[in-house]
């Protein structure tokens, strides 16, 4: 048992070292010439546009549900006019970024892990490498940068759709005009809410792309490893999102409040 524990720790330390190496290789390749613009744009389309519907639907439902769940409690205290304030702060500060990132971890990180994993299994990455091309630059740099750019944008869109969902939910039982609702929302949100929330989504995006690429690029040979790569990409990316969220919340508490 003790030996197994040691071996588990050893494996964890080894993998952490490999991840640091992979991170180093990523940064080296970002700053060397020959950036793959076409592939980067293609990945932005795949990651951003293709995930928009899912993020939009989820955010809309999230806005509706959050409003419907919160309303009875606020009504009890006669504070139903505070509903837009509460919903907008919740969505923008926390729920929007985290839910969007988790959805993208499930969709994008697993997709990248499976795609690169199957490329590894079918020797496509090896073929790229032995041809003298740079698979790190073509496959990894483009995907990580695309997720780093697109997740914050998806989160902004998701937040807006979530607030729209909340507006509709408010109007199920009360009447509030569009202008009044959004005025209340905007009054409730300050720069210190927006900046940390937006900044953390950049790190979420990076984690989603990085974990997906790392797991796919380093998957073993054999079809089973494609599934393992996809699965562990989702699990690890989700854990990293929660971990980064805790750090971001602590830092924003120190810096902004």
């Amino acid at each position: 048992m003790a030996e197994q524990e040691v071996s588990g720790w050893k494996k964890w330390v080894e993998e952490s070292g490999e991840q640091v190496n992979f991170l180093g290789a990523f940064f080296r390749n970002v700053f060397t010439g020959g950036f793959e613009w076409n592939e980067f744009v293609r990945q932005c389309y795949q990651i951003g546009y293709r995930s928009f519907t899912l993020v939009g639907i989820t955010s809309f439902i999230m806005g509706v549900v959050l409003t419907l769940q919160s309303r009875p409690t606020l009504v009890k205290f006669g504070a139903n006019s505070m509903l837009p304030l509460m919903v907008s702060v919740s969505i923008i500060r926390e729920i929007g970024p985290v839910i969007t990132a988790l959805i993208c971890a499930g969709k994008i990180s697993s997709g990248i892990g499976a795609e690169l994993g199957s490329m590894k299994v079918t020797e496509q990455i090896d073929a790229m490498e032995v041809s003298g091309a740079n698979p790190m630059q073509y496959l990894v740099v483009t995907r990580i940068l695309a997720t780093t750019l697109m997740i914050p944008l998806l989160t902004l869109l998701g937040d807006a759709i979530g607030l729209f969902g909340s507006f509709l939910a408010v109007n199920i039982s009360d009447h509030m005009s569009w202008m009044l609702y959004f005025n209340k929302c905007l009054k409730a949100i300050s720069f210190s809410d927006l900046l940390p929330a937006f900044t953390k989504t950049i790190f979420f995006g990076f984690a989603i792309g990085f974990i997906g690429c790392y797991k796919g690029f380093n998957s073993n040979k054999g079809t089973e490893s494609v599934g393992i790569a996809a699965n562990s990409a989702v699990v690890n990316a989700s854990l990293w999102i929660f971990f980064l969220d805790v750090v971001a919340v602590q830092l924003s508490q120190i810096l902004f409040y």
Binding site: S118, M119, T122, E123, Q124, D126, A127, M128
Partner: peptide, 8 residues
Amino acid sequence: FQSGALYD
């Protein structure tokens, strides 16, 4: 490569 390793 054995499989041809074409980029899918």
